[in-house]
Design a protein around this nucleic acid. Structure first.
Length: 668
RNA sequence: GGCGGGGUAGCUCAGUGGUUAGAGCGAAGGUCUCAUAAUCCUUAGGUCGGGGGUUCGAGUCCCCCCCCCGCUACCA
């Protein structure tokens, strides 16, 4: 039997699982169920990556030992996967004994083969924080504690990544399918073509890790350690499990998020080559789920809690949504509205209702038993049957390419055709008419057969619900024992006594659900789902923006940082004041007409006490150009000026330029 | 700045140089009554980012520009 080894990344245990982890894992689960139903001997591995400085530090921050944090969060992953019905075969923890042995062995092999050498790593180091700062000409202050850094030189083992450039480029060339999707492949090819630097693969500054076999005052670099988990998880380095490793390695599919593509398509194959081990067949990178078009992050407070999703929608609906909503590989925008939408229109209306009406008609007309087709099929049946057969084929074509959304679309096209078929045939008009009984039997058998086939096809995506439908169809043999390569139009349902028929996908009351999720009334999309727990007084958007831009005090007090992408959302432009006058009846407001290059705007600014209106005309200023408009004293303000806030009375001092800049130039 | 990918209906996206640019969802109207206020039918809605060009004919090919995303650059 052909084997199929599929992996998710080993998730880092410095935090609890979020929607991104859930997505990868559910995709892997779906694909491994699908491959099992194609008859493959599947091994599905997931697990946790538990070493490194970040864990060390996160644990210290919580006042616990790293082991405790790792146990706690590894447990959180397992619990979530169990709630989602994820059927993994192996769960590898990088703190397990067998993994230690495996990581040491791979390191040792690479060392013995001459690809690891001892060198020195030198950089700006913060001694109290145990942290290297980014490379710079002069000593930078530490990012964390703001104290000055010092130049230190640390002994380190280096991996000769540079010598693998050609082999890697050959790999990408000969196996274009190694990196998916193609856009990622192009990026990686380019990155490698530009040249590779040797990689530091050991640390002396970190204690929480696996000792380097040739020098136990070093620990193995956390990525080297974690990647080996794909090997140790199926028995590499464990003498009793050698046959398992030989059976499953190399992996057929390794799923990763797009943020870790380089580790998996550059470093990982290089490590394997250095250790003399075969390379995985394909690495597939997927995108991120965004919320309100922005990356989810704790600091932004827009994180989707997978448990909450599960509670409100159930695992099948979540699985369906994640696989159906976006093409696999692309980023997607998550919204509860879309989630409700999909659940109701696809699962409840199209699929669930088709099952209900079919089974109800059979139950009513044929004493709860699926009739055999009694009349010769008409062109309607033949056409539908034809679509069923092409769907079975097209579905697998898409699934094999990991095009889950396409695969599901083909099934829904079939569902739609079947609903039409029932409407056209109108079997309910035949009830009680003896002469029409054979025709009625044929119609209902046809519908039931479509339902059967669709149920088999969708079982990997909707395992819980499909198992219910399977039972309702009166099928005895387990659903997951069905084989897709043997799936064809048949009469096997004829004579089946139906199980108890209950709606499998109940319609959601969208309005009520949103109210439960967000609290009644106001909050719609903006608020995070769990906002009720930590309710903050609402702040009008522009006031919040103003506070952030004009007073240092409003910067995050906890020293947290934002990503560059957050900053990029603010459209700062050079503007020139062309007119300025005081606003009637307001003692602080000036009304400015500002030339932003391509447009001229009215902006109101509370700076009248510091600047005379006429003194501003002609002056270059910095404008936040994409701020929501706001009416002040009845006049609309389209933007905000940047100014320092000085002294106890917060006197504004306008930001400006010493050199000539064109109006409308973007600041970044 | 360099390289790559994009910009098509309210939303998500299809669209080999060839009728009148499509689908799903959403919206509006209608139909049916087996079914989960479901199904089914109809309709509305688009200067295909902008401007030039090639062509009998351009969403599609070429040039210029704008915007978005990704990767990258001692960029942040």
């Amino acid at each position: 039997m052909d084997t199929f080894y599929i992996t998710t990344p080993l998730y880092y245990v410095n935090a609890r699982p979020h929607l991104g982890h859930t997505y990868t894992t559910l995709v892997a689960d779906c694909l491994s169920r699908y491959k099992r139903m194609q008859g493959y001997d599947v091994c599905f591995l997931t697990g946790t990556d538990e070493h490194g400085q970040n864990i060390e530090r996160a644990a210290a921050a919580q006042g616990v030992a790293p082991e405790v944090l790792a146990d706690r969060n590894a447990g959180a992953y397992r619990k979530l996967w169990s709630r989602f019905g994820v059927e993994y075969d192996r769960f590898i923890r990088t703190t397990s004994k067998s993994h230690y042995a495996a990581a040491s062995e791979v390191f040792q092999r690479a060392f013995d083969n001459g690809f690891i050498y001892k060198g020195e790593y030198s950089g700006w180091y913060c001694i109290p924080c145990n942290l290297f700062a980014p490379e710079a000409d002069a000593a930078p202050d530490c990012d964390v504690c703001q104290r000055p850094t010092e130049r230190v030189t640390e002994e380190s083992y280096f991996f000769k990544l540079s010598v693998f450039q050609k082999q890697l480029l050959d790999l990408y060339e000969k196996h274009p399918e190694f990196i998916n999707p193609i856009s990622r492949r192009n990026e990686v090819v380019r990155f490698v073509s530009d040249g590779l630097r040797d990689l530091s693969v050991s640390r002396t500054s970190v204690k929480w890790g696996i000792p380097v076999p040739v020098a136990d005052n070093h620990v193995i670099y956390v990525w080297f350690d974690a990647l080996v988990g794909y090997l140790s998880g199926i028995g590499f380095g464990n003498s009793r499990e050698q046959d398992q490793f030989r059976k499953y390695w190399p992996a057929q599919v390794q799923l990763v998020g797009k943020d870790i593509i380089r580790f998996h398509t550059v470093y990982w194959p290089a490590f394997l080559l250095a250790a003399g081990l075969p390379l995985p067949e394909r690495v597939h990178a997927h995108g991120w789920w965004l919320k309100d078009e922005a990356k989810m992050s704790k600091s932004r407070g827009n994180v989707i809690n997978p448990h909450l999703l599960l509670n409100h929608f159930g695992s099948d609906a979540v699985r369906y949504f994640l696989l159906r909503e976006i093409p696999f590989g692309a980023d997607g925008n998550f919204s509860y509205q879309a989630m409700i939408q999909r659940t109701n229109s696809d699962l409840a209306n199209d699929l669930g209702n088709l099952v209900s009406r079919t089974l109800a008609l059979i139950s009513r007309n044929f004493e709860n038993t699926v009739p055999p087709p009694a009349a010769d099929p008409s062109s309607l049946e033949n056409e539908l049957k034809h679509h069923v057969l092409t769907t079975i084929e097209a579905y697998q074509g898409h699934m094999d390419r990991l095009a889950f959304s396409r695969a599901l679309e083909t099934v829904w096209d079939l569902l739609s055709r079947t609903n039409k078929y029932i409407n056209v045939c109108a079997p309910w008009t035949m009830a009680g008419d003896e002469a029409q009984q054979p025709r009625l039997a044929t119609i209902l058998h046809t519908c039931a057969e479509v339902v059967r086939i669709v149920t088999v096809l969708l079982a990997p995506v909707l395992p819980v619900s499909c198992a219910k439908v399977w039972k309702q169809l009166g099928q005895r043999e387990a659903l997951n024992l069905q084989r897709l390569n043997r799936l064809q139009w048949s009469r096997e349902l004829a004579g089946n006594r139906l199980g108890e028929v209950t709606p499998v996908f109940p319609r959601l009351d969208g309005k009520a659900l949103l109210e439960t999720l967000f609290g009644s009334g106001s909050g719609r999309r903006r608020k995070p789902a769990d906002s009720r727990k930590k309710k903050a007084p609402p702040v009008p958007p522009d006031e919040a923006g103003k506070a952030a831009a004009t007073t240092a005090a409003a910067a995050p007090a906890d020293g947290s940082t934002i990503a560059i992408g957050d900053f990029a959302k603010i459209d700062l432009r050079v503007g020139q004041v062309v007119e300025a006058d005081k606003v009637e009846g307001a003692d602080r407001l000036l009304r400015l007409t500002v030339d932003l290059g391509r447009e001229t705007r009215q902006i109101l600014a509370g700076i009248a006490q510091a600047y005379a209106a006429e003194s501003l005309v002609g002056r270059k200023i910095i404008v936040v150009a994409n701020l929501q408009p706001r009416k002040l004293r009845g006049l609309e303000s389209n933007g905000m000026l940047l100014a320092a806030s000085v002294g106890a009375e917060d006197r504004p001092v306008l930001a400006t330029f010493l050199e000539e800049v064109p109006n409308g130039a973007r600041l970044k």
